[in-house]
């Protein structure tokens, strides 16, 4: 399948935006007191979120996890309100209550970022159930890491989704690590996608550093889900370049391994593909890069200039 030019350029844009957004966060985290809490980045694995979400329609819903920035940006989150939330500012998408770990944007179909590992799949089952129940056209996509497949909730959710033929796609973003654990230290199976067989749903392995492969695989799974044929488990093989969080010195990740995966940069790969197909001129590519940079700088300025919430605002949005 040839991916249309607009889609290719859209994916390149979101790959570059996710990358620059997080590079900026890496720098901001080095400034004492600037960014509260833990900073968990998807740098190096952006093609998973970008390729998946690029295959979705506005009515589709994503349920995401702690490594959510590329998922949310591609779903259409305004970088400004994301950045402000990450700063803990009142103008953030959740008024400072969520911080980077629980970004909630129901207005764009991203109602839940759960940082409780494995919590996403059952919630995605419920979201997809509502779509099926009301006979809506949308489907639900749930992102989990490889480590999350160690939780019982993952397995319960896959079984139920398959049993009820729910319109949901489970995406396992296999970045080789769960915390400091390598994949082979937390499971004996090589392909997480093999789990799907146990629930009688298709399990697909895809190169998670290739946004185009992720995109085409996602389109197929989306069509299946929308046609009432039930869920798919897609395992995207990728790698996280940075530590689990920004405070992780990565002592357990071999330097050569990081270097090898950096050579497979998903952003560069898409840029090269777009250039090779003659879809963008050097000049237009520069303009695209400049637009991305402006978005990131505007987001930072917006967050910097925004006020913190007043302490008593902690008591707002409380109902019981």
């Amino acid at each position: 399948m040839t991916i249309p030019k607009d889609k290719m350029l859209e994916m390149l844009h979101f790959l570059m935006l996710s990358r620059r957004f997080e590079e900026a966060l890496t720098d901001l985290c080095r400034i004492e007191g600037k960014i509260p809490g833990m900073m968990i980045l998807c740098t190096g694995q952006e093609a998973v979120g970008v390729g998946m979400v690029a295959a979705l329609r506005p009515e589709d819903v994503i349920i995401t996890n702690h490594r959510s920035h590329a998922h949310l940006l591609t779903k259409g989150a305004d970088p400004k309100v994301l950045m402000a939330e990450i700063y803990g500012k009142r103008t953030g998408c959740n008024k400072g209550k969520s911080g980077t770990l629980h970004l909630a944007l129901p207005e764009i179909g991203a109602p839940c970022t759960s940082t409780v590992v494995g919590a996403g799949p059952p919630i995605a089952v419920g979201r997809a159930f509502a779509q099926q129940y009301r006979n809506e056209p949308g489907i639900t996509v749930c992102f989990v890491g490889d480590g999350a497949t160690g939780e019982g909730s993952f397995h319960e959710a896959l079984n139920l989704a398959s049993l009820w033929r729910l319109p949901v796609i489970f995406v396992c973003e296999n970045n080789r690590y769960a915390g400091a654990q390598r994949q082979e230290e937390h499971t004996r199976i090589e392909n997480i996608a093999d789990r799907a067989a146990g629930y009688r749903m298709p399990g697909v392995v895809v190169d998670g550093n290739d946004a185009m492969s992720v995109y085409t695989t996602a389109l197929d799974a989306r069509a299946r889900a929308a046609a009432g044929e039930g869920p798919t488990l897609i395992e995207c093989k990728t790698y996280r370049w940075r530590g689990h969080g920004e405070s992780d010195p990565q002592l357990y990740q071999p330097k050569e391994e990081i270097a090898a995966w950096r050579a497979l940069c998903p952003v560069a790969r898409m840029r090269d593909a777009v250039r090779a197909r003659g879809l963008i001129s050097a000049e237009d590519l520069k303009a695209m890069e400049a637009r991305v940079e402006t978005l990131v700088q505007e987001a930072i300025r917006f967050a910097e200039e925004s006020p913190y919430p007043e302490p008593h605002e902690a008591l707002e949005d409380v109902y019981a």
């Binding site: 803990g88 400072g96 209550k97 919430p309 008591l315």
Partner: peptide, 16 residues
């Protein structure tokens, strides 16, 4: 602590 989930933003968490 007040009857709320612990908020993330520094002034809100301090309030908690």
């Amino acid at each position: 602590g007040p009857d709320i989930p612990v908020p993330a933003s520094p002034p809100l968490e301090r309030f908690y």
